[in-house]
Design a protein around this nucleic acid. Structure first.
Lengths: 112, 112
DNA sequence: GGAACACTTAGCCTTATGGCACAGTATTCG
DNA sequence: CGAATACTGTGCCATAAGGCTAAGTGTTCC
């Protein structure tokens, strides 16, 4: 659970920044070099690189360097942890809803 | 888009903290008072209140005060923005996959 | 009324975050 | 070889985040 939570934490922290979400969106269209990505954002390259590093260290993207160009690729699978978390939430809600429904049913039976 | 992004930003920022995610999970089981929630976390009440406020200001929970007790309720609908964002990502990926498939198909046709 | 309770407000502190400029390294091109 | 390119590394800065203590405020209970 602690480990799971740590993974989740990194992914959510990575997604908390609009620049980084935009990079993920952008990479959804296909692999792109750091330079090409950076040109779309109003910030310097070193600043942008920090975001790239955050995304990579949290497993949301993968990068490779060929010559002097570093190319970023989206790691789609990683976003599954968000899906899983949402699914778990829903499971909890539904359990509760079921309990409440049973409660109502039991009360009705008691009234008969 | 800017407005949408701002909403999204708040929700992801709120979810980036493990304490806050835990509160959401906890509230999935039903409404709970601030005090009852706080007792489950290794931090002081004022510190914990900040998290409650963050969650409320970003629309993830709703609170009401009755007497001296403030009760927190989960706002399930709010998490839909995360769902929507994930769905949009998938849409982008699928568009790309479709394009790649067409490309392969066209090449095969050209070879004939 | 007074004590206990459940927050709430205020102010402080430390660390993390996100930005910058500037200098350096490694490739590529003419 | 030398210039341009594409990062990369370093160090600095301002603000925000997340924690604390201490001192309120308003309710409830005896």
């Amino acid at each position: 659970m602690a480990q799971y939570s740590a993974q989740l934490d990194g992914v959510f922290v990575a997604l908390a920044d609009p620049t980084r979400r935009w990079v993920i969106r952008r990479l959804g269209h296909g692999p792109t070099s750091v330079g090409d990505l950076a040109r779309e954002f109003p910030m310097t390259l070193p600043s942008f690189m920090k975001h790239v590093q955050t995304l990579e260290s949290n497993g949301l993207i993968h990068t490779t360097k060929s010559g002097r160009v570093r190319t970023c690729v989206l790691n789609r699978e990683r976003l599954a942890v968000v899906d899983d978390w949402l699914a778990e939430q829903r499971r909890i809600w539904e359990e509760r809803t079921d309990r409440l429904e049973r409660l109502v049913t039991d009360e009705q039976e008691n009234q008969q």
